[in-house]
Design a protein around this nucleic acid. Sequence first.
DNA 1: CGAACTGTACGACATTGATCGAACTACTCG
DNA 2: CGAGTAGTTCGATCAATGTCGTACAGTTCG
Lengths: 115, 115
Amino acid sequence: MLKSVTDDVIEPAAADFQLPRVLAALADPHRLAAARYVAGHGESWCSQVIEEAALAMSKSTFSHHLRILREAGVVTKRIVGAKGYMILRKDDLDTRFPGLMDAILHDGDRVPAAR
Amino acid sequence: MLKSVTDDVIEPAAADFQLPRVLAALADPHRLAAARYVAGHGESWCSQVIEEAALAMSKSTFSHHLRILREAGVVTKRIVGAKGYMILRKDDLDTRFPGLMDAILHDGDRVPAAR
DNA sequence: CGAACTGTACGACATTGATCGAACTACTCG
DNA sequence: CGAGTAGTTCGATCAATGTCGTACAGTTCG
């Protein structure tokens, strides 16, 4: 009863993506920032994202957000050694929701200074 | 002190739209359905949307959702007589987040049967 | 005017969600 | 092996959200 430990999360197949779920996953500023970071820097491991994307939260909280993103289908995880790499499922998302990620990642928001 | 009564809601200017807010507004299946209904049927009044979009909820709940949509900038309201018409702020949304609404409204989701 | 209709505001409540710290499992490296 | 690093899971909080019913304010129309 310790399959691979770290994992209980179900990552849906592209065909099972649900728009509301994806939107909800990206509606949180922290998760949006994480997704953007990964989109712009390619595969990145958790601690890296937390630090470099300047997400002020504990690792356990990040783990929670990561789960939401994975369950929505936004990212997938690849374990390499002790690190867990996050990868944006850009192709699947583009297939299922053409234009959505471009519109979201493309920014259009980018907090204009502090706020 | 009863300006126009029904209203306390602040509808942001296009320049003040915040992506997370818009995404959160559309992340709720009911609100998404309402937005889609309005997108497809043009100006519509509340009761009409509740009924025709088959939203199973009380009027007060719908009113709550309408507020969220308005505060996010997704729709605006126009009062005509006793009715309150909802209008999708498509242009503002397109200006601020090119492609976003098309990707979201375009469907791509459309619940495949019951589920 | 008064009944009927449209929608909002206000509490109340239950559910979900974000957050943390601690305990734990894996892997890496010296 | 043992110290250190990487993340997850668990339980506990506390805040945010969805939902309803009731009370209310404008409008319409008989």
